Amino acid sequence: QVALSRTQVCGILREELFQGDAFHQSDTHIFIIMGASGDLAKKKIYPTIWWLFRDGLLPENTFIVGYARSRLTVADIRKQSEPFFKATPEEKLKLEDFFARNSYVAGQYDDAASYQRLNSHMNALHLGSQANRLFYLALPPTVYEAVTKNIHESCMSQIGWNRIIVEKPFGRDLQSSDRLSNHISSLFREDQIYRIDHYLGKEMVQNLMVLRFANRIFGPIWNRDNIACVILTFKEPFGTEGRGGYFDEFGIIRDVMQNHLLQMLCLVAMEKPASTNSDDVRDEKVKVLKCISEVQANNVVLGQYVGNPDGEGEATKGYLDDPTVPRGSTTATFAAVVLYVENERWDGVPFILRCGKALNERKAEVRLQFHDVAGDIFHQQCKRNELVIRVQPNEAVYTKMMTKKPGMFFNPEESELDLTYGNRYKNVKLPDAYERLILDVFCGSQMHFVRSDELREAWRIFTPLLHQIELEKPKPIPYIYGSRGPTEADELMKRVGFQYEGTYKWVNPHKL
């Protein structure tokens, strides 16, 4: 086992960053958080920038500027975001240094004079007029057009580079997404736009490419001749908990499936790229999406959770019991969808996408189930092999396979070949997804960000279904809070070829 401390991990990262040409360590950078008073800024962006600063992973002359409508001070920003920093008493001095680099400007999102004030403020910072500028839009999409237009007109660096990070949702359907994309691309070049999907920053999602293309053993079996089906799962054990009003506007397909799960599907299904260059990788992902037809209604199961009468606390409440959810809402909190990649490698292999709230566990994984062994000599005792990439929690890679049961006879039983990170790298604290992705933006690497043509294809696949749901308002199937979801989803999976045995229990190697 390799035991690495946080300091050692960050030392390795620093070495990698400083050796590259793309990370300008000594240049002045300004990180501007648009929507600095909001939840995302408070819980994710400010803490992430602090962790990067604490670990010495930001360029040395980096300033952080918050911008929002609320009249706040840096002290206010500190008060609301610091509880999420997880700072230790030993880091007190470092924390003071961090907040000394912070400033805040209040202004409207659609007022040109406010942006001119913001620009004057940035120019007044040390070497601010020639600094590289990175704008993070932690804002609702309704203000994107006004904000990007004003940034472009008043706040661009004339000497350094300018980059803009856009948070999902990128529209509600193909038409609104196209409108937003066309607007942003009329102001910024594609190499300046970073559409963030934080799932692409997760260690195991990034590991998929290495697993596939750096190991000879997987190449020959990664196709329709050997793989019976692919299941991509995202499960949350909690409901909307008072935030249903926002969720109800989008629903589970827009929230998770059309982005996170579809991105994971691309990494499983794509061909080997010409290189690890950002556009070479994204070219292959677009090719996969172009091979997927629009979702067919007979390959869809929609569910909505109801309270568990035997549960406790939140578990007793259904989705419609959330006071922020519109009365009688038919918005799905669970969806199972089957897609097919219609190309030579994957023809006929079902890709089953499942996601839901208020389920029995927290889990995100990719599961490849292989065909049955031909010419069975073990009297149907063999179960199908599976390769599982567990994204969260407890990152893991393992192969479910058959071995001989101890004893006199040739009785096979299920076991696993474990390729888990935790076994080799004991207690290594890896940077989280937002840390990686923000560092990628500083480096100018777009590999783990969504390109406009990729986004367009993703919406093309799901828009007809979303429009049909909005028009017909089908009643989702009720499922109990804390269950596996509607049984109809299991029946759909069985119908397209997935075999669920229920006889195997994964042993978490992190707890051995």
Rank of each mutant, 00 (worst) to 15 (best):
R384H: 05
A315Y: 14
A374Q: 14
I377L: 15
R327D: 15
G313F: 12
C382E: 09
I352L: 09
N385G: 07
K429I: 14
S483N: 09
I389H: 04
Q258R: 02
L262V: 13
G348K: 11
G375A: 13
Q392Y: 07
G482V: 00
K505D: 15
A332F: 02
L437V: 08
I438G: 01
P309T: 12
E454R: 01
R282C: 01
E470W: 08
K272T: 05
G422E: 13
V337I: 14
K475N: 14
H467Y: 12
L430D: 05
G485T: 00
D372L: 01
R384K: 13
G497S: 12
A297Y: 11
E491A: 11
V300E: 04
K405S: 14
Y319I: 00
L353R: 03
R367I: 04
R254L: 05
E342Y: 10
A358M: 04
M270E: 04
T503C: 14
E501L: 06
G502N: 15
T503L: 15
K426T: 13
R495T: 13
V496S: 11
E488K: 10
V337D: 06
T503N: 15
P323M: 14
P406Q: 08
L289W: 00
G318W: 01
Y500N: 10
P476I: 11
C443R: 10
E365Y: 05
N259C: 03
S445T: 12
R436M: 01
M264D: 02
L471Y: 08
A274F: 11
L417K: 01
D279W: 10
R367N: 02
R345H: 13
M401Q: 07
R362E: 00
P393M: 04
E416I: 00
A458L: 04
W506Y: 12
T420M: 07
I477Q: 15
A332C: 13
A269V: 06
T276N: 11
E386T: 04
G444K: 10
R495V: 11
G444S: 10
V300D: 00
F351A: 02
Q381K: 11
M493H: 10
V286A: 09
V349M: 06
V373W: 06
L320D: 05
E344C: 09
L419V: 08
T399K: 00
M401P: 03
L492T: 08
R460N: 12
T463V: 06
L353T: 03
Y319A: 03
L455F: 01
Y421S: 03
N411H: 10
F351G: 04
R345M: 11
V373E: 13
Y305S: 03
T463L: 02
G497Q: 08
G311Y: 09
R484Y: 03
T330I: 12
V306C: 14
I480M: 15
L320M: 12
K404A: 03
Q304G: 00
A489P: 02
G485R: 04
E395C: 09
D279H: 10
L302A: 08
A274E: 13
E342A: 12
E501Y: 11
H260V: 03
T316I: 14
R495L: 11
P412W: 08
N343T: 09
G375S: 15
G485L: 05
N343G: 07
N343R: 05
